[in-house]
Nucleic acid binder design. Structure first.
Lengths: 225, 225
DNA sequence: TCAGCTTTTTTACATGAATTTACATGTATA
DNA sequence: TATACATGTAAATTCATGTAAAAAAGCTGA
């Protein structure tokens, strides 16, 4: 029973959609303006968000843009019928899908399920230990060991290392790192990945620049054996 | 460079889309009927499939249905404009997305990327070591060794050498070098490849001009052992 | 609630890499 | 041989990254 947040100023439409969604065994929360939407989306952990573009005060794009700084929850946008530009802008801004209004609830559900299928098909490879070079990563306890010593990492540093380790010997681009390790989209002039990486390298000691290589213009790569 | 299979009976549209996709650095294969599509999809390992619904003989739905018995490659369907039912059926049958025809190539690319972002979990590197002449290249750690000595290269220099090494004994043209090693199109008066090559040769020492040969008007070639 | 911690993000600037510019040199073509 | 054009490379410029430090956001326990 996935958990949906519905952000639309049209109260009646909301009720209607919510009812249909609930009949399809979704759990639905509604809010009717952009600001509340933002707060609600940040406050709870939804499986997906349905977001109307046309809203007074804070429109859907602004909400999406702001949201993407904090969370990577899939977003399905409701746009004015046949407005290509909106759709494209939305997708490029990181929406996961759009639907022209007025929309067919059955299609909404189909799309929602499609999105959820994609996003929730989180690879269930629950590995016990990842060993790379002199690094051991224990996902179950979120602990990292380097050269037989416990490596005290912050949460983000650990995530970063885990993502890199799951892709040893391959460049992982910053977009991916940001989404997977920090759970937010990479924005322009966003240096947080570089920052965390710098910290991580400091903790890894001298040959950390070899161990974690910079691939300029792309991202980073953990050296494989 | 993701690998796309395009299945559509409209040859002209195919060409057009393929061109656009290639300009966005996708690799595209085309077939123009459902059966060939099936076979091709099963024969090669594509990153995504673009599938037209309306085709003579074997329509898109049949292809999708059959395909899903064998492979889980993400599928983006092209449907007739505004045909709700098609879209719903497609999504319910396991398509990953649809796009109404005629479609905007830019939107197609945006959607493709969105799908790939989801589904692509970095494939493991295939080759361990490339050995050519006195050069050893270790893609997993992005290290190059020349005459048993570590060769300190910048990121671009390494990329360049790797691309050349993967094509030993063959001329690699500058367009390819630029796209594969620097990740950008070669533009007019663009000397960056020559520049990096110059640096690379300097690091390789005296016989570097023999080792990496200039093929005037074409590109460069790493001499095969 | 708050003060005092930790973590994360942003800012700022130094450093080094990549690209562009410029010119010398070499090579094809008429 | 004269001309155009491609390449080699030093130097200037532009741009990405590394990282310290400041600011902001989270936590925690009174």
């Amino acid at each position: 029973m996935p958990n949906i947040l519905l952000i639309d100023d049209d109260v009646e439409l909301c009720e209607m959609l919510a009812e249909y969604l609930e009949s399809e065994s979704f759990t639905v929360n509604m809010v009717h303006d952009g600001h509340s939407g933002m707060n609600q989306a940040k406050a709870e952990n939804y499986d997906a968000i349905i977001l109307d573009v046309m809203m007074p005060e804070m429109d859907g794009f602004s909400v999406l843009k702001e949201l993407r700084k904090y969370i990577a929850t899939p977003v399905l946008m409701l746009t004015a019928k046949g407005d290509d530009v909106d759709r494209i802008v939305g997708l490029e801004m990181g929406a996961d899908d759009y639907l022209p209004k007025p929309c067919n609830p059955r299609e909404l559900v189909a799309r929602l399920k499609a999105i959820l299928r994609r996003t929730q098909t989180a690879p269930p490879k629950t590995v016990d230990v990842i060993k790379v070079n002199d690094i051991e990563i224990h996902p179950a306890s979120r602990k990292a060991i380097y050269q037989s010593e416990n490596l005290p990492l912050t949460s983000s540093e650990y995530n970063l290392l885990e993502v890199l380790a799951m892709n040893v010997g391959t460049v992982v681009d910053k977009e991916t790192l940001s989404e997977q390790a920090l759970g937010k989209k990479l924005t322009e002039y966003d240096r947080s990945i570089d920052m965390h990486l710098s910290k991580l390298r400091q903790k890894l000691g001298d040959d950390s620049q070899e161990l974690i290589q910079t691939v300029r213009g792309k991202g980073y790569q953990l050296s494989g054996g």
